[in-house]
Amino acid sequence: MTYTMPLHIQDTDDDDSNYILIAKIDNVKNVSQLLKAVHFKEECLNIFGASTVSGITTALHLCYAGYGSPLVLILEEGGVLTDCRIKTQETEEVLDFQFSPENVVNKVIMKSEILREAWSDLDMTSEILQIVMSPDKPYFRLSTFGNAGTIHVDYSKDSDMVESFQCTQTQSNRYKISLLKPSLKALIQSLKISIRTDEQGIICLQYMIKTEDEHVCFVEYYCVPDEEVEVGEYE
């Protein structure tokens, strides 16, 4: 049996005109780090390599020829070329939370490391994560109501880990914990987190991530509250 050699995709310059998106980067880790921060569904390609050998970087060439074509990722590492073609799917509408900075009621900026442990230890037997932000005590509180009992984690506004604390009114909002917990992936990668809520209780979590080549990128999470709780109703 005879097979024709597969086309090598090294010289794509003349083919570039076929693509509507071309992106190249020398070190794919800058991209994979960000992808990990937003990856909370299972069907993601996990091929960016755990190359721990220093000095060897994997280069990425990404292209897309338009509707119906697969997303093409070409990775090159130490002379070995990997060509991935991922079938594209119909996009769902991107949700617009209509969260605008003018409507922000409360805002806290803190270093991510102080939130990491609490976020990863959240009692997942609780359906709800309650977030209280207030100019008065407890200032910033995360609460769960699971099988182990009620748990509160309080952060003081005077903490050295809190960079900015601008709360105008006491708000207590409850969110589905299953929606917020996956943001842990972004939290782990990030240096700082900004937490803002608007009048409706919609929460915006903004993570500042520094990639390997010192670029600063932002990942944003939005979530609507499950229900509004009367002030003072918490434990």
Partner: peptide
Amino acid sequence: TDLVTVKTYFKD
């Protein structure tokens, strides 16, 4: 697989 095709080329 259904969603993805990956080929890795080794030379030399």
